[in-house]
Nucleic acid binder design. Structure first.
Length: 115
DNA sequence: AGTTTGACTGGAG
DNA sequence: CCTCCAGCCAAAC
């Protein structure tokens, strides 16, 4: 028995994209969240990779605070060195190993509304 | 229609 | 802490 929903229909894909962008727009300044947390909130918990794809390829996503999305261990996006600068500018601190200090800055969206 | 590719994750060594 | 690997799944080849 698969523990994940059936393959997305085009409409579900559209809703997923809109939900992801909506959630990202709500990440507070100076905080970060993860691909997995966002995926879970949309109702598609196994689609963390899809969250990354959405932020990378959706036109206009660069106007949202997508630099506040990192992976579960606090690693920034490959090939996007500017992400660290943007985060540091709003007070996010990094550990010596180059990862975001998740203990201090992780924002875990809880009961999200108006999606 | 089969294979490869990631802005991912969790576990093993 | 690091690297490697299997599982993941829509998209791109």
């Amino acid at each position: 028995m698969r523990d994940y929903p059936d393959k997305m229909t085009p409409e579900q894909a559209r809703m997923f994209r809109d939900d992801v962008l909506n959630i990202v727009s709500q990440i507070p300044r100076g905080r970060v969240t993860t691909y997995g947390h966002i995926a879970a909130l949309t109702g598609w918990p196994s689609h963390a990779r899809m969250v990354g794809r959405t932020l990378r390829y959706t036109p206009g996503a660069d106007q949202l605070p997508c630099h506040r999305v990192v992976n579960i261990v606090g690693r920034t996006a490959p090939g996007w060195g500017r992400q660290r600068i943007l985060l540091e500018e709003e007070g996010v601190t990094f550990k010596p190993n180059g990862r975001v200090d998740m203990q201090r800055h992780l924002w875990e969206p809880e009961l999200l509304l108006d999606l």
